[in-house]
Design a protein around this nucleic acid. Structure first.
Length: 552
RNA sequence: GGGCCCGUGGCCUAGUCUGGAUAAGGCACCGUCCUUCUAAGUCGGUGAUCGUGGGUCCGAAUCCCACCGGGCCCGCCA
């Protein structure tokens, strides 16, 4: 929960006393530039059969005497409220002085699990999967900022057909007791080619699964070993863009610890069989839990994993590609309707990333890996930073180029509504202008630069702010509302859009309001604005995974 | 065939959940501003039947219905 002097709420509660039927949405943050909050009176006029004049008079009576109100203006069917800027400044300053953050957070005891990425350890992480990681990581940061104890989790699929196939390839073509990633992937590709028309090999893969689930020590040791090699490389790629996952769970551990069997037991009265394979009927569909040879299927392992997570968490969030939607409907049905688990479970889906040449495919080689993207973004940002800052030493240039590249990649993916399909284009991915992370970072660096030029600057809250200052103060003050919206909808892109708007407001302030050479009274109030601005940008950027810099 | 998602200037998006005031940005294009704090920036201009057709409503990009176009799903894969 967010803590701050919430003038929207105060206004709403006062209005609610005179209009008991008032809905939260009737008092909106104004988007049209008329005021800060706007009361839409249409419904009130209709319900209570009163005139606009009556409403205006009543509102003026109760709110006119509140000291945080600057102006009340009825226009058409709206009543616009303007909040005093010095009150907004005070509200922000108060939190930052005492906690270092605006808004302050009330720490919620609930523990939240955010599962993201969970990609099969059968290949490098590519730009399709990375949408999952970036979305999940930002979501985790957002929820944590909101006051929950968040753990990020990765479910390692090491017991399905894909990994068994990987192992078959290793055994046939690689053999090395200390294999590298590329050899493993080559082996995987070769086996997949052979599998297309060789049924004996299919039998071999099935046998590997049986051995693995049965607990054959040699199979376990080897599969763990090759999965770890690939997983390490995935994690290395992720850490390159600032993503670290807290907890890993191996599917095979849940099988051997009996979790999957317990799922079958608890569903025993609903289980049906077909050729020895067990299934349940979920929403008119057969959902198989085991194969006819007794080995487990993803559905039962996923149920087991969710039960395991519910032992330690009050709220589970899963970030998944849209192709999992149907599957998750059935998972939810089992957990909520059959097992009657009432705890909170949310799914956040994202649409696919494709290339201009079409859908990505690891096997066909039509893909762009994260490593490749990072490398090219680094080159691009290095080129730019060298051109812009020839005065800086090389290690400084490296640091800037690195932050710019990584921030740009993350921001580009997180700012887009997750439901939209994304066609990856190099020209857009490598762009460092416009609505991008560098746009935000650059503004922040200019703000920092102003403060560096002043020795022990005074700060002050003024009674008077001009229009650029006023618009910026308002946008800063509204930060908690943006966090709230993002949190409620589990949509980090709301924070991204907020941050872009904040940057535009700051740029307007920057061009219109000189600081360093301003008179003392002007300077001190602007210095405080910059302090608050820097604080909020830093905070919001952290949620977005943008690595903010004091100089660039 | 059934289900879910998307459709907003030439291109990419915000706004859709929770209907409300002249539809907000970016890219590209044309023009402006470095003798004031970093031009990765600023200001101005060109450019939108909000996929189409109905409906509900005082009011629809937003809600409902139908259709069109694109994506995803409908495995003893994950």
């Amino acid at each position: 929960m967010l803590l701050f002097d919430d003038y929207w709420k105060m206004t709403f509660e006062i209005l609610k006393k005179i209009f008991p039927g008032l809905k939260e949405n009737d008092l909106a943050l104004d988007r049209s530039g008329h005021g800060d909050f706007t009361l839409r009176s249409f419904q009130i006029m209709k319900d209570q059969k009163v005139s606009m004049e009556d409403i205006s008079r009543q509102v003026a009576d109760v709110l006119g005497k509140e000291d945080f109100i600057e102006k009340i203006e009825p226009v058409g069917g709206y009543i616009n409220f303007t909040i005093r800027r010095d009150k907004m400044m005070q509200a922000m300053k108060k939190e930052i002085d005492s906690t270092g953050l605006y808004p302050d957070t009330f720490q919620d005891p609930e523990r939240v699990s955010v599962e993201h990425t969970s990609t099969n350890p059968t290949g490098p992480i590519h730009i399709g999967r990375i949408r999952n990681s970036i979305l999940g990581d930002s979501l985790a940061r957002l929820i944590s900022r909101y006051g929950y104890r968040v753990t990020t989790q990765y479910f390692i699929n090491d017991s399905g057909k894909q990994v068994a196939t990987l192992f078959a390839g290793y055994r046939k073509y690689v053999k090395d007791s200390n294999p590298n990633v590329n050899d493993l992937l080559d082996g995987y590709k070769k086996v997949n080619d052979v599998l297309e028309n060789d049924h004996s090999l299919q039998e071999e893969v099935d046998e590997i699964i049986r051995q693995y689930e049965k607990g054959d020590p040699d199979t376990i040791r080897n599969i763990r070993m090759i999965c770890t090699v690939i997983l390490n490389s995935i994690n290395e790629s992720l850490s390159r863009i600032g993503i670290k996952i807290d907890d890993y769970t191996w599917e095979s551990d849940l099988i051997r610890a009996g979790d999957v069997d317990r799922v079958l037991e608890s569903l025993s009265d609903k289980l049906q069989e077909e050729d020895g394979a067990k299934y349940i009927t979920s929403l008119d569909r057969k959902m198989f839990l085991t194969r006819s040879d007794g080995t487990s299927l993803y559905f039962s392992r996923d149920i087991a994993y969710h039960l395991y997570k519910f032992q330690n968490f009050d709220w589970l969030i899963n970030v998944l590609g849209e192709n999992h939607k149907e599957h998750m409907k059935h998972l939810e049905y089992v957990l909520k309707d059959l097992m009657e688990i009432e705890r909170r479970l949310d799914f956040v889906y994202y649409s696919y990333v494709s290339l201009e040449s079409g859908r990505m495919s690891t096997r066909k080689g039509n893909m762009v890996t994260l490593d490749e993207l990072v490398e090219r973004a680094m080159e691009e940002s290095m080129k730019v930073v060298k051109e812009k800052r020839p005065d800086l030493p090389i290690d400084k240039l490296n640091e800037i180029a690195d932050s710019v590249a990584i921030s740009a990649i993350r921001f580009q993916l997180v700012k887009l509504n997750a439901n939209k399909t994304l066609v990856f284009k190099w020209s857009e991915a490598l762009s460092l202008e416009g609505d991008s992370a560098p746009f935000i970072m650059y503004s922040y660096a200019r703000a920092a630069s102003i403060l560096r030029k002043l020795e022990e600057p005074e700060t002050a809250i003024s009674q008077e702010y001009d229009s650029s200052e006023s618009a910026l103060i308002r946008q800063m003050y509204f930060y908690p509302y943006a966090l709230e919206e993002a949190f409620r909808g589990l949509r980090p892109e709301s924070v991204a859009n907020y941050l872009l708007e904040l940057t535009r407001k700051f740029n307007d302030f920057y061009t219109n309001c000189p600081v360093v050479n301003a008179k003392e009274t002007e300077r001190s109030k602007r210095v405080l604005i910059i302090h608050l601005y820097k604080n909020i940008v830093k905070d919001a950027s952290n949620i977005m995974g943008i690595k903010i810099l004091e100089e660039m």
